[in-house]
Amino acid sequence: MIYRYAVLTRASHWLWVIAFAVLVSSGLQIFNASPNLDASDKSDPARRVLAIAAPVDGVGTTTIFGHRFVTTGWLGWTDDGMGSRGPHAFPGWITIPGYQDLAGGRRWHLFFAWAAALCWLVWLVSSAMKGNLRDMILRPSDLPKLWPMQAYYLKLRKEPPPHGTYNPLQKASYTAIGFVIAPLVVLTGLALSPGIDAIANPLTVLLGGRQFARLWHFVGMIALLGFFAIHTFQVATQGALNQMRAMITGWFRLGEHDGVGP
């Protein structure tokens, strides 16, 4: 048994879990107020990537790159959060508040955006000061080990490559999420703000414009959801109880291959 996660890391982890759930569900509430995503600066139907609509009462459609799918009940014509169905892009059971309320969704979203970002900053500074970041960040020397590690998971290899307390795939996903995707989601969200745009217009331009930033922000959410799905799958399949205990109490039982190499 090793003491793997400091109390600050564990607290941050669970705060992020809550913040992430709130940010996704309030973000979908905000999306519902204008359920289109355009690859452009101003709104432009000619450059529409995603459109969720209710063309007639009782029918929901989702149009992706011009391909239209009927998604009644799931997207477009869905649960209105008040016991019946109506023209809501994402259903009420997944949004916060559960009924149509843009102002409410914005309050949840902007508060938890701050909470998650400040929590990330505190965690980053404290981990950097303690030197823990070194174990988590993917280095060039880890790159040749990525496929052997995956091959081990796929049972194509008997032994994993030698590694430290985190294996190369874990390092890759922590680095991608903590230092690439999450910061990008923050930046794409900030680029949507007319106040930030006036201060840092190159950021909005770099992202392809304001509506494009809204599209990237949505794509970033999908990337975070993808990470969340893989992460929970790995926890569930690789000693769920050991992992959960570690993230709650800090104590982790090292596997026979963990912590034996550089």
């Binding site: 409410g104 309050r107 902007l110 745009d197």
Partner: peptide, 28 residues
């Protein structure tokens, strides 16, 4: 969501945004 105290806490982000972003620079 229906709790007044929770709503007060959530609304505190507005002051932070106003203080940090404010009205600076020029719109494109």
């Amino acid at each position: 969501n229906n709790n007044a105290t929770v709503q007060k806490v959530l609304a505190s982000a507005e002051g932070l945004n106003h203080a940090l972003i404010g009205t600076r620079g020029l719109a494109r």
